[in-house]
Nucleic acid binder design. Structure first.
Lengths: 255, 255
DNA sequence: CGTTGTGTTGATATTAATCAACAAGTGTGG
DNA sequence: CCACACTTGTTGATTAATATCAACACAACG
């Protein structure tokens, strides 16, 4: 199957469920997350926030942002993970990031999106229209400051990924990915880095490959080799255990 | 000469000239640029801006930002170009961007820089301390909005570069670079894209290589091939003429 | 002059991509 | 329950793109 066929096939199955909730509690899960921007707003203003936003849900596989679409939705992920990507005319794909709970999505540089986004698993998102977001920023300077911080952080991640894509070997790329996932989901483990860490990787090999600038086969071979070297243990349904995080961190900058 | 030796050698010659000017006119060149954030401030407040910032100059080769340095300077470039880069422990370098006139530099994601910056040619910059920048943002919401826009734009550029580094061929990378340079310095030419465009490329082959995730030799060979195909003309002292911009744009996504 | 920095070109090596086959898991319908 | 298609992941053989190693050309400069 060619690259073109693959993206066409993936685009075929696209049921979309959109749900609007009212009531003052819909930002509860949003609020609980440090990365989100909702929690810079005082408790008293949550009702106001509810008026400005709506909850949307997408089933796994839904392609809810596309290059060239009018960029009038700003999302804050509350459940699930999206692959965010760009395509070349012949179908080559580069995944520029995975947006999980707490991440924002769709801060437009211009008036149309210049990336696409697709739900990897079932997702729930908090949606603001462009107008609503601007109202929110105008009324709550803290929101704007938080958005600036989040965007600057995204930029730093993108720059780290440029180092990976431009200069790291396949082994270093895979190690970097595993370490980054470990840091994302197990912040607490950053201290005791000798312990083993179990990760849930919701993405497919093809996602990892397109994120790391490799092929599926190279990712698979690299993971296999790491398994035979007892660096990782590959568990059921996308779970991977890093046996020694400190060693993996070394590998991420010196293959 | 090994990779390690090269970066050590480059780090050797580092004279630094710092100059502080007073008087109400020092942001004149800054103000004139659309990309800068100074021009969102009313004319009457320029004196105030002068109090908050100072002008610094660095001679070519100066390494004025380093990974791990306390991030208390925010710069706005007014003259010259810097290479902004990250290093791996063994000396491999990835240039994450070139900061020319109008670009900002050093918006910190954290409290220390996670990149380095070096003057390619002689530079003049407008410097704010972290504290000064925050005062400015607090007093002028338009400045904060502008910074958010600029950061989002930087992020979009970084994402485009991730596509380049992860998925494009050497030929596509070089073509993309030339097109991007053409768009940067000759915005007007975007319409009549059949015309030829002459670019001044202040960076060395090693800069281009480290920016595009290639080796010096591959960049050189690719340019040579483009020259023999009459796609470009290589002129004196880093000037390159793109003979047909539209054709080069095609090459940038389909080698 | 020699030295140094930069760029080009050629020969060879190496990494990762490509092409190909197959295994395991899942869901479907008879 | 089984045959079947389909998706995902693994592994092997071969190829192709780019890196590496090496030599040299040329300009700037003391």
């Amino acid at each position: 199957m060619s690259i073109e066929d693959r993206s066409v096939a993936e685009r075929a199955r696209r049921p979309v469920i959109v749900e609007r909730r009212v009531g003052p509690s819909h930002c509860a899960d949003c609020m609980a997350r440090h990365q989100s921007f909702c929690n810079v707003i005082g408790d008293d203003d949550i009702a106001y926030l509810n008026d400005l936003s709506s909850i949307v849900q997408f089933v796994a596989g839904t392609n809810f942002i596309d290059v060239g679409m009018q960029a009038d939705s700003f999302y804050n992920v509350s459940k699930g993970t999206a692959r965010v990507f760009k395509l070349l005319p012949d179908g080559r794909r580069q995944i520029i990031g995975f947006a999980g709970p707490g991440h924002f999505l769709g801060l437009p540089a211009k008036d149309v999106y210049n990336f696409s986004a697709e739900a990897i698993d079932d997702m729930r998102l908090c949606r603001f229209s462009r107008r609503q977001l601007h109202i929110l920023m105008d009324n709550y300077p803290a929101v704007e400051r938080r958005l600036l911080d989040m965007t600057a952080h995204e930029l730093a991640l993108a720059q780290e990924q440029m180092l990976l894509l431009g200069r790291k070997t396949a082994r270093e790329r895979v190690a970097s990915f595993l370490v980054a996932e470990a840091e994302k989901y197990h912040v607490a483990t950053r201290c005791g880095s000798h312990a083993s860490v179990t990760l849930h990787i919701p993405m497919l090999r093809s996602d990892m490959a397109d994120y790391l600038g490799l092929t599926i086969e190279t990712v698979s071979r690299t993971l296999t080799r790491m398994r035979t070297e007892f660096l990782i243990t590959i568990l059921k349904s996308g779970d991977i255990q890093i046996n020694e995080l400190a060693r993996m961190q070394e590998l991420s900058t010196a293959g």
